[in-house]
Nucleic acid binder design. Structure first.
Lengths: 203, 203
DNA sequence: AGAATGTTTGCACGGTCTGAAATTATTGGT
DNA sequence: ACCAATAATTTCAGACCGTGCAAACATTCT
């Protein structure tokens, strides 16, 4: 990778880091783009070459998209053949993504912190999830051979996104991410939904 | 109601109307607050006395909250005792709200139109739904006697919101709203979820 | 080294939104 | 009907966001 590329990544990280740090220190309202750019030692104009908005610098690039390969496997009906189990696999892959695990974990924690302290970020964040949800719906539709706009796929995808949204809050952060614990939590969550809406039981 | 109050409502409606009309005519990007204010025959500053942002004028006041009474009934375990049926009742009430039915219908159609044409409005809209979702979760928790932050309530609420989001697209708009049709669609939707996540069946 | 290409910067501008003070309209009492 | 209290509107100045453009600068490739 050339010098040019490395420098770009460096300033990108610098900008993002400065944005997050300053926002946590002073609150989003009391931080200007100019200050962020100054902290990263670039001009304010350059900030906007990297991020379209201040929010974008804070929320980072969209995670929540599964790897090419994992999506493929899911669509083909794998890896286990059981819908819920495979869905869980796909979701965990989407969340923990490809890269370094600890890094990803740190980002998630940071995002959580920011969202808690700066509710203004919520709309943008939800919009991201919404995009991810649509992709997931497409994958589910493909797997089950239904037309792409089948309402059931959208519905299942939406519920699945709710599940990860609410379940991931409970996954023990900290040292190293306990994937098995996450998997168990997800299983229970989906089970609850089945019970709530299923034929046989009602809460 | 005094003259003062009536005038306020009038300008509010004028502003909102002008905002919607101009946006549908030219696209959100090509309409300034100044123009909206001018069309409503007030100053631009006054616009901001009524709405915090341009978006707010377009999306209107938050619907999606059930009536006081209906919420009460739901929390107490009514009206039928069947969880899903009662949930559907509550959702329909939230959507169609208290006021005039035709009016509400028109607003919904207008919102749909705006959201289709101006995707920038989506984040804000999703944030509203999110707020509604939290209220719904609280109601569900109350009804089932679980602690307010019980994960299952949040989960069910989230799925329910997904259901109405995706189902209401299919409800025939137009003449007068077919509530029975909506009810049936909702039943099917919840049934699909039960099947997708339930013990016995898998798609 | 020098041309080609990509990145950063400065500048000017249109737009959103906020605060404060001056102005105008409504209300209620007399 | 008048007048004081109260509330809404307007004007004005200003901070900040985000974009287009062209000049300056750095890097890559030959």
């Amino acid at each position: 990778m050339g010098l040019r590329e490395r420098k770009k990544q460096a300033t990108r990280r610098a900008l993002q880091g400065a944005a997050v740090r300053l926002t946590l220190e002073r609150g989003l309202e009391n931080v200007t783009v100019e200050e962020i750019a100054a902290a990263a030692e670039v001009s304010a104009r350059t900030f906007f070459n990297y991020f379209a908005t201040k929010e974008e610098a804070l929320l980072g690039d969209g995670p929540f998209t599964p790897g090419e390969h994992e999506r493929e496997v899911f669509v083909e009906g794998g890896p286990t053949g059981d819908f819920v189990e495979d869905l869980i696999d796909l979701l965990i892959d989407s969340l923990l993504g490809s890269g370094d695990l600890a890094t990803h974990q740190a980002e998630a924690a940071r995002r959580k912190e920011l969202l808690d302290r700066e509710p203004q970020l919520l709309p943008g964040f939800l919009a991201r999830l919404h995009r991810a949800e649509q992709e997931l719906a497409a994958a589910i539709a493909e797997r089950s051979g239904t037309p792409a706009d089948d309402i059931r796929s959208s519905l299942i995808a939406a519920s699945a996104m709710s599940v990860i949204r609410h379940t991931m809050k409970r996954v023990p952060y900290g040292d190293d991410p306990d994937i098995e614990a996450a998997r168990t939590l997800l299983r229970h969550a989906f089970r609850s939904l089945g019970e709530a809406f299923g034929r046989d039981e009602r809460p």
